[in-house]
C-alpha cells in the first residue's frame, strides 16, 4: 500500500500545524516551573486531552492489538481495570489530592519531605531506570507500524523515526510542558479521528456476530490442538474436556455458506448460521473449515479467567498494576501536578477514565479482526508476527485518504507520547538527581538550560537504544516488567508515606530495594532459562514476578518501618502538614 498525494497532504498539514503550535508556546516559558508543569495553569479538558494523548502511543496501539490478536476482547481486561482504578482515584482523591496539595514537581520531591533526601535520590534513580528503559522500545515499534502499514522500506525505518524524534525535540525543548499541552490537544483530535474511523471500518469488514463466532471457533480449535499435543492431563485439574472437536474444524467439501451451520453446530458454538448475513458469512466462512495455522493461537476470547484464559493471578496482577500506574506513573502524575488545583486533577481523572477502556478495547478489536483475516488467508505472511499483524491487516483495509489520516493519527500518537515522556524523565533527572547534589541554586536561565539539555540527551539515548534494541518477547510483558521495577516500590512508598504515620526512611529504602527484586529476578531467571534451558529448567511467570514485587515492597515497608522505629523514634507520626505549609506560603 503506497501513499497518494491526498494522503501526503493530510500528513503534511498535520505535521506543520503541530510543530508550529508547539514552537509558538516558547514565548511563555519564563522559568523551570513554566517549562516543567506549565506554570500549573492546566484546566480540566486540556488535561483530559493531554492525559489521553500521552498515554496512547503507537506502542500502546501495537501491544494492545497484540493482546487482541492472542486473546480477543479479553485481552482488553487491563483497559477495564485501569479505567476503574482511574475513576475510583478521581472520585476519592486517593494519593493524588495530597500530592497536588504538596505543590511538588515530581513524586520523589514529595518523598524528601517525608523520608529525607536519600530516599528522594534513590526513588529518582529507580524512576529513571524503569521509565527510560520502558520508553526504549517506543521508537522502533512506531517505525515498525509504518513499515507494515504503508510499506516503508525497512532501511528507512531508523532515519524516519530519528527525523520524527527531531521534530518532537524541537518543540519540547523550546516550550516544555506548555508546548506539550497544546500539541497534545491537536494530537488528541487527529488520533481520535483515526481511531474512530478505523474501528468503524473494522466492524464493517467483520460484523460483530461473525467476529464473536470466529473467535469462539478459533479458541476451540486452539484447545483441541493443545489437547492433541499434550493430552488432557496437562489442561489443569478439574477442567472439563473442550467442547470443540478437532474434526469439526477440519476441511469439508460443502460450499462455505452451507458449511457454516454444520461446522458451528458440531463445534458447539453458540453462534448460529442465521445470525450472520449472507454477505458476511460468505466472506468469512472459509475460516470455519480451516485449521489454525502454525503460530496462531486464540486464548479464551471473552472470559479472562475462564478455561484457556489469562488466569486469576494475571488479572490480580493487572489490577494491582492498574492502581499503581494511575497513582505512581510519573507521566500520568505530571498532569495532576500541572493541574490548577487538586479538584481539577480529580475531575481530569474521572473524565479520562472511560477513555482508557477504548485504549485497549479498540486496538484489541483491530488485532482480533487481524487474527480472523489471517486465519482466512492461511496464516501470517513471512516476516509478520503477532505484534505486526494488525498494521499489515489495516494496510489491506484502509482506502486512499483514510490511510493518510491513519498515518497522521499514528504520528500524533507517537509524538504526543514521546514529548510527554521526554519532558517527564528529564524533569525527574533535573529535579531529583541533579538539584539535590547542588549546594548553591543556579540562576533560572542556567536551570532552564540544564533541563533542556537533559531532554536532548534522553532523545539521543532513545535514538541509539530504542532503534537498535531487539525485543525478546511480548511487548506488553517488556513494558510491564520494566515499569514494575519502580511501580511496586514507589506505590508502596506513596501509600505508606501518605497514610501510615509509622512509615520511615528505613522502611522506604527496604521497599525500594525489595520492590525491584521481583522484576529483576524475572529478567535474570528467564534469561538464564533461554540461554541454557537444560541447566536452568525453571521460568518465572510475569504475573508471579509482578505480584511478588508488590508483596516484597509492602513487606519491606512494614518490617523496615517497625525496625526503624527503634532507631528513628522522632520520625514517627510526621505527616504532610509540612508539605501543605509549603504550599500555602
Amino acid at each position: 500500500m503506497t501513499l497518494t498525494p491526498l494522503d501526503w497532504a493530510i500528513i503534511g498539514v498535520y505535521l506543520i500545524g503541530c510543530v508550529a503550535a508547539g514552537v509558538w508556546m516558547k514565548r511563555y516559558v519564563r522559568g523551570v516551573e513554566d517549562f516543567a508543569v506549565a506554570g500549573r495553569e492546566m484546566d480540566v479538558y486540556l488535561g483530559v486531552a493531554s492525559l489521553a494523548a500521552t498515554e496512547v502511543g503507537v506502542v500502546t496501539i501495537m501491544y494492545t492489538a497484540e493482546m487482541g490478536f492472542t486473546n480477543g476482547p479479553a485481552g482488553a481486561t487491563y483497559g477495564v481495570l485501569s479505567a476503574l482504578a482511574m475513576f475510583l482515584v478521581g472520585l476519592t482523591g486517593f494519593v493524588i489530592t495530597p500530592m497536588r496539595n504538596a505543590g511538588v514537581m515530581t513524586i520523589p520531591e514529595l518523598f524528601e519531605k517525608r523520608f529525607g533526601v536519600g530516599v528522594r535520590w534513590l526513588a529518582g534513580l529507580v524512576i529513571i531506570l524503569g521509565g527510560v528503559l520502558n520508553m526504549g522500545i517506543f521508537l522502533r515499534l512506531g517505525g515498525e507500524f509504518l513499515v507494515h502499514l504503508i510499506g516503508l522500506p525497512q532501511q528507512y525505518l531508523e532515519v524516519t523515526m530519528t527525523a520524527l524524534l527531531a521534530l518532537v525535540l524541537l518543540y519540547t525543548v523550546l516550550g516544555g510542558m506548555l508546548s506539550v499541552l497544546v500539541t497534545d490537544y491537536l494530537q488528541f483530535l487527529v488520533m481520535g479521528m483515526g481511531i474512530v474511523i478505523t474501528s468503524v471500518l473494522v466492524l464493517w469488514h467483520t460484523p460483530w456476530p461473525v467476529f464473536t463466532q470466529q473467535l469462539t471457533l478459533a479458541h476451540q480449535a486452539t484447545s483441541a490442538a493443545q489437547e492433541q499435543e499434550t493430552g488432557l492431563g496437562s489442561l489443569g485439574s478439574g477442567e472439563s474436556a473442550p467442547s470443540a472437536k478437532p474434526q469439526s474444524i477440519s476441511a469439508t467439501t460443502a460450499p462455505p455458506h452451507q458449511a457454516q451451520p454444520q461446522a458451528t453446530s458440531s463445534a458447539g458454538s453458540a453462534a448460529t448460521g442465521t445470525a450472520v448475513s449472507q454477505k458476511s458469512s460468505e466472506t468469512t466462512d472459509p475460516a470455519v473449515v480451516k485449521p489454525l495455522p502454525k503460530g496462531m493461537k486464540m486464548g479464551n476470547p471473552f472470559n479472562p479467567v475462564g478455561r484457556g484464559g489469562l488466569g486469576w493471578m494475571w488479572v490480580l496482577w493487572q489490577a494491582m498494576t492498574a492502581l499503581a500506574v494511575v497513582t505512581t506513573w510519573q507521566t500520568t502524575i505530571a498532569r495532576v501536578l500541572a493541574a490548577r488545583d487538586s479538584k481539577t486533577a480529580k475531575r481530569i481523572y474521572r473524565r479520562t477514565a472511560f477513555y482508557f477502556v477504548g485504549r485497549f478495547a479498540l486496538p484489541g478489536l483491530w488485532g482480533a479482526a487481524a487474527f480472523i483475516y489471517f486465519w482466512q488467508q492461511g496464516g501470517l505472511p513471512e516476516g509478520v508476527d503477532t505484534l505486526r499483524a494488525m498494521p499489515r491487516f489495516l494496510a489491506t483495509l484502509l482506502p486512499m485518504g483514510l490511510l493518510g489520516l491513519m498515518v497522521a493519527a499514528m504520528l500524533a500518537a507517537e509524538m504526543s507520547t514521546d514529548s510527554g515522556y521526554l519532558l517527564t524523565w528529564a524533569t525527574v533527572i533535573y529535579n531529583d538527581l541533579l538539584m539535590p547534589l547542588v549546594r548553591r541554586k543556579p540562576s533560572e536561565k542556567t536551570r532552564l538550560l540544564i533541563i533542556r539539555s537533559l531532554v536532548v540527551l534522553i532523545g539521543l539515548f532513545l535514538v541509539f537504544y530504542g532503534l537498535w534494541y531487539q525485543l525478546p518477547g511480548k511487548a506488553w510483558d517488556y513494558l510491564v516488567v520494566t515499569g514494575n521495577i519502580y511501580l511496586a516500590s514507589l506505590f508502596t512508598l506513596l501509600v505508606g508515606g501518605l497514610y501510615w504515620p509509622t512509615a520511615n526512611r528505613i522502611g522506604a529504602t527496604a521497599a525500594i530495594i525489595l520492590g525491584a527484586v521481583g522484576p529483576l529476578s524475572f529478567l535474570i531467571v528467564n534469561f538464564l532459562h533461554d540461554w541454557k534451558p537444560d541447566q536452568f529448567p525453571w521460568k518465572i511467570a510475569p504475573e508471579i514476578a509482578g505480584l511478588a514485587a508488590f508483596g516484597c515492597a509492602f513487606a519491606g515497608m512494614i518490617v523496615g518501618s517497625l525496625v526503624g522505629r527503634l532507631f528513628l523514634p522522632n520520625t514517627v507520626g510526621q505527616d504532610w502538614s509540612l508539605a501543605r505549609k509549603d504550599e500555602s506560603q
Partner: peptide, 10 residues
C-alpha cells in the same frame, strides 16, 4: 470526546 473536548479544550 472529539467534539466536546475539542471545543472545551480549545
Amino acid at each position: 470526546l472529539l467534539f466536546y473536548v475539542g471545543f472545551k479544550g480549545g
